[in-house]
Amino acid sequence: MDGISFTVRKGEIFGFLGPNGAGKTTTMKMIQCVSPRSGGTLRVFNLDPEVHPDAIKRRIGVVPQETNLDPDFTCEGNLVTYARYFDIPKDVVKQRVNELLTFVSLEEKRDVSIEKLSGGMKRRLILARALVNRPELLVLDEPTIGLDPQARHLIWERLKLLQAQGNTIVLTTHYLDEAARLCDRLVIMDNGKILNEGIPSELVQLYVGNEVVELEKSEDVLACLRDMGIPFEEVGDTVLIATARAHEIARTLLERCHPHKMLTRPATLEDVFLKLTGRRLRE
C-alpha cells in the first residue's frame, strides 16, 4: 500500500474499485484487524486495529473473497458455530439464525451440508454469517464474484436493505456495474494507490462526460475523425468518442464518415475506470 487515505461515513456504501492486485483486499484486511500496517494511521470506530482488535471485530461483519464456510457443518450449524465465537447467548442465537436464514432465502437449506450448496447459496450464507453479530460495519470483499445475474441481484437488493436499516458498508469490487449501482462514494485504486475518490455519477461526468459514441474501427473512419478534429480513443476494433452532445456528433459522423456500425450510449464508470487504470491486462 502506498499512502492511501480515505474516510467512510456512517450509513453509506463505500466502494474500493480497482484491477486485480490493486491493493483492495489488503486494505480490507487492515480494516478487519488481520493484516498489520507498516506505518500511517487507521481508525475503525475511532479505535486502532492494532490496539483494540477484539472491540472492533465485535462490531464488524466480514464477507471474505474466498468462500471459507465450515464444510463440517450444515447451513444452520455454520451460523450457530460462528455466533458462538462472538459469545452470543444461546437463546438469542436460535432466533437470529432463523431470521438470517430467511433474510438470505435459505430457510429450506437449513439442514443441508455446505458442499451441496450452489455458488450463489454459499455467498448468501456467508452474507448471513457476517450479519450474525448485528454488525454496524459490513466489510465485503468481492461480494458477488462468480455469481449468475439472479444471485447478484439478490445480494445487491439485500445490501441496499441493510443500508436502509442503518448499516455502513465497505466493499471491494472489480465489477463496474456493481460499483455504480451500489456505492454512494468510491475510490479507484491501482498499484496500492488511490487514483481518485468521488460519487460514481460525478466521476463519470468529470472524467468522461455525459455520453459516448462508439464506432466500428476502419481506416476511413479514423481518417475522417482526424480531419474533423474530433478527439477519440481506440479500443480493440472500436473507436470511442466521449462527448456531451452525442446525438449531434453521431448525426455529423453518419453524414461525413459513413461508419459501418455506430451507437450512442451514456458514459459509464467503466469508461472512467479504463481511462484511469489503462487497458493493459492484469494478472
Binding site: 488481520v34 477484539d54 466480514v62 471459507n68 465450515d70 460462528y82
Partner: peptide
C-alpha cells in the same frame, strides 16, 4: 483447505 482459521480470525478470536 478449509480456510477455517481465516474465518475464525474475522471474529473476536485472535
Amino acid at each position: 483447505y478449509q480456510k477455517a482459521f481465516d474465518a475464525m480470525i474475522a471474529t473476536p478470536l485472535s
